[in-house]
Design a binder for these strands. Structure first.
Lengths: 299, 299
DNA sequence: TTGGAATGATAAAAAGATTTTCCTGTTCCG
DNA sequence: CGGAACAGGAAAATCTTTTTATCATTCCAA
């Protein structure tokens, strides 16, 4: 770098006061420092910036005048960057990148983001949807600051802040033989084929629950598409299990669905906010986290 | 200043290489320096800029990504300023501020500037016209780099580069009794009233020439307006003396004028380029000076 | 499973800048 | 002519930056 911002600052102060001494006072520094800074700029650029009037200040040369304009604009720019950077962690403005487990996202986030947008109109929320493992990878890759997801596959480097516990549900077609019960056991469901939501991690998690009960599922289909699962179930006697419970009881192609709680006592799955333990949270993300807590507290 | 351009450069290099070590190589510096620069930026801004993946590089946080954009733009800006400043003395581009004695300006400069503009289309010439003293003041005040003027009132701090010698002329109305001579002596003219070009310095200079010949002028009028002098002479039997010899033999209001050389041997007045001795000339001004010499050499 | 290679962080020493103090020379002004 | 104001220079002091050396962590291959 042929010059520093500091030198530019001293130069501008000198140009504007027309005196090295006054400039030094203005930037709270000794006079020779300013003198040296200017001398170095002149040497670096190979131009005289000032005409010195011995014992009565100095005035800009044409070259100095040109540099003055540029220097000021650069200093202003630097200040913008500084303000922007200071605000990165502090201000309730800018961008907030949030990761979210994809099946949860459309059920919860539109509402939360709506409220958040009204409270903090300066913050623009950017969403990153992915499966459970992808969300954790995204956190580690710094794609977003925190993520709304289940407490699945967490490692020590992830801090998990529980918002609510979600019970496991099964999905059945509305006209399924078991659909009119209040709740149903996986042991009963196991006689029907299973449609598996085949997302990384989730897939194995669902299977592990079933195996854990000593049962052997008959997997009719598996698909990573959430709506596909619902559709397949709606049109057959198959069942599926998942945590996310959409309010809509209709599949995308218009068939009715039933959602029943599972009878078996299982380790409760938690929905919450995951973040990298070693990264300090920004004020923006804390604000959103607070909103999440408020939202789930009321339930 | 909360940060330096250097720190920003290291930060950008790190962000772009995804590695402190690679960044250090790219900017030709040791790895701990880069590490320290980033740490300081993070401390100053109060935000984590990177997620460190121990032993396998780092990746940007959302905050880091935001800063990256700003940092790059600031560095680009700084580079523009640097290039601009380097060019201040070197490039044949930008602005060239020229001072000029006002009575000389319209006689010579339009032609010279025309040629110069064609040779150096990147340079825009800015003219500062003034009287002899004003031109010297302007030089000292740094308003322009050099000036086209007469060798009058020069001090030691001014370097004068002679272009040509100009003889003293007298101006008379075309129908003046003395107007049909080839040349005329001030001793003859002195019987007629004098119209004095009353510019600072010039005025006293003209008077000193006359007094120096032991003559006493009758000053009919004095005016700082060059065309006014010509007009007053054109409409009377008065005379005036000056160095600048316009090619036009007409006053602004359409009367004919005669220009005659002065017979007396006087110290020749020189037209040339004046500049502050202590200021180093830019390449731009040297180019213009060269053109001036070329122009007057041919005469 | 283990040892080596790669990587970032840290500490201490070295090198380099910046800053300050003190001083000089110039110019202006009463 | 003497004092005040000002820029610039020199040397010492102080701060920063850089480097060297080392450590801890992780990955990868044997």
């Amino acid at each position: 770098m042929p010059f520093t911002l500091k030198q530019l600052r001293y130069f501008v102060a000198t140009a504007e006061t027309g005196s090295v001494t006054l400039a030094a006072q203005r930037v709270n520094i000794s006079q020779p420092s300013v003198s040296a800074a200017i001398a170095e700029l002149e040497a670096r650029f190979g131009v005289d910036l000032f005409v010195r009037h011995h014992a009565q200040g100095l005035s800009l040369t044409p070259a100095g005048r040109e540099l003055l304009t540029d220097a000021k604009s650069l200093l202003d720019h630097a200040d913008d960057v500084r303000l922007g950077a200071m605000g990165l962690g502090q201000d309730l403005a800018g961008e907030l990148h949030i990761g979210c487990f994809q099946t949860v996202a459309p059920l919860i986030l539109p509402h939360l983001i709506g409220i958040f947008a009204r409270q903090h109109s300066e913050i623009s929320v950017k969403l990153h949807e992915n499966h459970v493992q992808g969300v954790l990878d995204g956190l580690r890759a710094g794609e977003f600051e925190f993520a709304l997801t289940y407490d699945l596959g967490l490692d020590d480097d992830i801090e998990f802040d529980t918002l609510t516990e979600v019970p496991l549900h099964c999905i059945l077609a509305k006209d399924h033989p078991l659909a009119r019960h209040k709740a149903v056991a996986i042991a009963e469901l196991i006689q029907y084929p299973l449609v598996l939501l085949a997302l990384p991690h989730s897939r194995d998690y669902f299977l592990s629950i079933i195996y854990g009960l000593g049962l052997q599922p008959r997997v009719a289909h598996e698909t990573p598409n959430f709506e596909m699962v619902r559709g397949l179930v709606a049109h057959s006697d198959a069942f599926s299990i998942m945590h996310s419970r959409p309010l809509s009881e209709w599949s995308l192609d218009g068939k009715r669905l039933a959602f029943l709680p599972i009878k078996e006592k299982l380790r409760p799955t938690r929905l919450g906010l995951a973040r990298l333990r070693k990264l300090r949270p920004t004020r923006r993300s804390l604000a959103f986290a607070a909103l999440c807590h408020l939202h789930f507290q009321g339930k």
